[in-house]
Simulated assay, not measured.
Amino acid sequence: MSIRAAWELRAQIKSVLIGDAAFLAMTAAAIDPQIKLVALSQQALRNNGLPNFSIDQIAVIDCQLDAHVRPGLLDARNGRAVLRTLDIAIGGAQQGIFDGIVTAPLQKSTINDAGVAFTGHTEYLAEKSATAQVVMMLATDRTTPPLRVALATTHLALKDVAAAITFDSLRRTIAILHADLKNKFGLTQPRILVTGLNPHAGEGGYLGREEIDIIGPVLQAAKESGIAVSGPYPADTLFQQKYLADADCVLAMYHDQGLPVLKYASFGHGINITLGLPFIRTSVDHGTALDLAAAGLGHADHGSMLAAMNVAAQMVRAGWAHRVHA
């Protein structure tokens, strides 16, 4: 998936793959003998940065696996090697060697089975970059206008969501969302629509008071600070063209409130974006699909990876334009 996308976009995006160079070379040859990979050692990267490669080559930073790979089968012996690829990517982004990071799906259980407590890419990137709070946003250009949905909470049990929505955390979420829509997407004055937590946005307090006691006051404070935010709106009616046409992003209160709408519209071609990090990070909107990997090459759709790479490149360009004109 990553090899296919990098090769397809090689004329537009200078991609660097991070992984076991020998395994990637074998995979690339099986996909298309025309694909040319050039291996680069981690030491060379640290000493000299990223060299120039011709348009018909894809650079690979060699991060060797600890055990032989059998497609579709999990092996805890490779769990720590997966994390090493992330560490290389993070280090390169922090040093300015990479303009951004695009992550492929990984199997969390393999890393945990290797003895490392791991909850996901997003949390790991935040920890390694010393970022106190990040915001998860999924996006697609398969709708008109493009749909972006950010989350006030992410992977929480439903019973824990209400307690996690506090004045301070929600206010920080909106501030991060506003700042990155400006700085990484080049939007001059982002327009953000916010859902309520409860059915009918609380029905004036009869179906819950979070909208009155927390969400409403946060939105008022955000408006007073110059952020173009409005709501809280009932989530079951907000995702209509007549409302979304005037919005740059929707902020939903929890995972299964906002993401089913986006994934219905774009599954396999949407992207996951982590906001609040000191570097750009996008990812695919799906998991590892072990059944497709076991079935052999050519079964996985690389559409989401193409979208993730294209949006990362757009964010890089928008960020540079913003800095030039700031």
Results as ranks from 00 to 15, higher is better:
residue 196 G to M: 06
residue 208 G to T: 14
residue 185 F to M: 15
residue 206 Y to K: 12
residue 186 G to R: 06
residue 196 G to N: 05
residue 178 H to I: 04
residue 188 T to E: 13
residue 181 L to R: 08
residue 195 T to W: 03
residue 204 G to D: 02
residue 206 Y to L: 15
residue 214 I to V: 14
residue 211 E to I: 08
residue 213 D to E: 14
residue 216 G to T: 14
residue 208 G to Q: 14
residue 194 V to S: 04
residue 205 G to Q: 07
residue 210 E to P: 10
residue 194 V to P: 04
residue 179 A to T: 14
residue 212 I to L: 15
residue 193 L to I: 00
residue 196 G to V: 02
residue 203 E to R: 11
residue 178 H to F: 12
residue 216 G to C: 13
residue 179 A to W: 12
residue 199 P to R: 13
residue 196 G to S: 02
residue 198 N to D: 08
residue 216 G to E: 12
residue 209 R to M: 07
residue 180 D to F: 02
residue 213 D to V: 10
residue 196 G to Q: 00
residue 199 P to S: 13
residue 200 H to D: 08
residue 192 I to M: 10
residue 205 G to M: 07
residue 219 L to Q: 00
residue 190 P to S: 03
residue 190 P to M: 04
residue 216 G to H: 12
residue 217 P to I: 07
residue 203 E to G: 13
residue 197 L to K: 06
residue 180 D to W: 03
residue 199 P to N: 12
residue 192 I to F: 02
residue 186 G to A: 02
residue 194 V to K: 07
residue 183 N to F: 04
residue 201 A to Q: 03
residue 187 L to N: 08
residue 194 V to G: 03
residue 192 I to R: 05
residue 195 T to I: 05
residue 189 Q to I: 14
residue 211 E to H: 08
residue 200 H to G: 11
residue 186 G to I: 05
residue 178 H to W: 09
residue 210 E to Q: 13
residue 215 I to K: 03
residue 200 H to R: 09
residue 185 F to E: 11
residue 190 P to N: 06
residue 216 G to M: 14
residue 184 K to P: 04
residue 184 K to E: 11
residue 209 R to Y: 04
residue 194 V to F: 02
residue 192 I to H: 08
residue 182 K to G: 13
residue 187 L to A: 09
residue 189 Q to W: 11
residue 216 G to Y: 11
residue 196 G to L: 00
residue 178 H to R: 08
residue 187 L to F: 15
residue 196 G to R: 02
residue 183 N to H: 09
residue 211 E to Q: 11
residue 213 D to M: 01
residue 213 D to L: 10
residue 191 R to Q: 13
residue 206 Y to V: 15
residue 182 K to Q: 15
residue 196 G to E: 05
residue 180 D to L: 05
residue 202 G to T: 06
residue 180 D to T: 05
residue 181 L to T: 07
residue 180 D to C: 04
residue 187 L to H: 10
residue 198 N to T: 01
residue 193 L to E: 00
residue 215 I to V: 09
residue 194 V to N: 05
residue 192 I to A: 02
residue 208 G to S: 14
residue 213 D to F: 00
residue 203 E to M: 11
residue 207 L to S: 02
residue 202 G to H: 04
residue 207 L to Y: 02
residue 207 L to G: 01
residue 213 D to C: 07
residue 202 G to Q: 07
residue 203 E to K: 11
residue 191 R to Y: 08
residue 212 I to Y: 05
residue 183 N to C: 07
residue 206 Y to Q: 15
residue 183 N to S: 12
residue 202 G to F: 00
residue 195 T to C: 14
residue 201 A to S: 14
residue 205 G to H: 06
residue 214 I to S: 04
residue 216 G to K: 13
residue 190 P to R: 00
residue 195 T to H: 01
residue 208 G to K: 12
residue 219 L to P: 04
residue 209 R to N: 10
residue 181 L to G: 07
residue 216 G to F: 14
residue 199 P to H: 10
residue 187 L to E: 07
residue 200 H to S: 11
residue 183 N to Y: 06
residue 195 T to K: 03
